[in-house]
Design a protein around this nucleic acid. Structure first.
Lengths: 190, 190
DNA sequence: ACGCTATGAATGAACG
DNA sequence: CGTTCATTCATAGCGT
């Protein structure tokens, strides 16, 4: 087993320098395909690099700068702690606690969104619906294995969080209307 | 102090599998409210999930697939071999046939960041040559192994880091137009 | 050797 | 729908 080449692109100093130049000097944040091609062509001289690497690099770079900025602003040890009480836009910020009610009503376009919207009014508050009346869950992870049992080796990687040993707490071995009827939606749903 | 749950929905492998099933096997891209209800009802067994999560998942998935498609079309001398994408019929048992390729036909506007994805594909880690679009599978499990396109590494058991659907197949070695005339994106650039 | 940090990679969420 | 932001996972690199 090997063949993975390099799992992760490791930019050389030259590449980083070039990217920074592009980023800072040129201020390019969203290069065009042509630009990308050229950039890539250049960087490839130093090491294996794909377009996505550049993409990620730029994205991460931008993100990170913002993050730092934000962090600095928040963690400011100096004064300015009570200054902004109303400026920062709510939601989606460092404080991120999603406003449940804020979600409804504005998704974007009109396509599937409409359908979602119809259901989604319950984004966290009400979940009346008609389906979840009965906690159908008998086999819990039955199909889980069916889906992807491709864990070749193992992977015994440390489990960081809840892993997958539980979580559903399903304990209702009752009758479920359609637990494993996948076909039902596939066929009947569409 | 209980945490605020996870700010971000963390799909379990099971959920992803189910979503893929819905997406690929059923070819559902814009589920109806009823479908949404059912989907969500099912997925809720594994973790907390709201309608919006599904909505976003589908959107992102579609977007991503489209990007790939565009890329393929671009790299393969325009549309040419995309015709035979639909070949082997599922012929499982339920007989869900997919029709995913029906969407292609309108990609000519490269805009911005996407240019990256457009231009590149190979990451260097995985490389799937076959389009995961169609879980054609002549087995007996119907939809089971079909989803997992065998994902060697990653092996993240939990969140969504295991990847599965992307296929960066074409790793164009150096077919670029090679506009090496990096005359000047910036001043001297290097 | 082990743990921490920096950062590449991936994807969920949201904007226009 | 395409683009962009934000968050998180995974890992190369480095210090102790």
């Amino acid at each position: 087993m090997e063949a993975h080449q390099q799992a992760r692109w490791t930019p050389t100093p030259e590449q980083i320098g070039m990217l920074k130049d592009i980023y800072y000097n040129s201020g390019i944040r969203s290069p065009t395909p042509e630009q990308i091609q050229q950039i890539i062509a250049r960087l490839r001289q130093y090491s294996r690099i794909e377009v996505m690497n550049i993409f990620y690099w730029l994205e991460n770079h931008i993100s990170r700068e913002r993050q730092k900025m934000r962090l600095a602003a928040t963690t400011t040890t100096t004064i300015t702690r009570d200054l902004h009480l109303i400026n920062t836009a709510p939601s989606s910020s460092t404080g991120h606690f999603v406003n449940t009610a804020a979600q409804m009503g504005n998704y974007g376009s009109v396509t599937m969104e409409k359908s979602f919207r119809d259901c989604s009014i319950s984004s966290g508050r009400d979940h009346i619906e008609t389906l979840p009346l009965f906690p159908i869950h008998g086999g819990e992870d039955n199909f889980s294995t069916a889906y992807c049992n491709n864990k070749p080796d193992s992977s015994s990687y440390y489990s960081g969080r809840y892993g997958s040993d539980d979580g559903h707490g399903s304990s209702c071995p009752s009758l479920e209307l359609s637990l494993n009827s996948y076909t039902s939606w596939s066929s009947g749903l569409m």
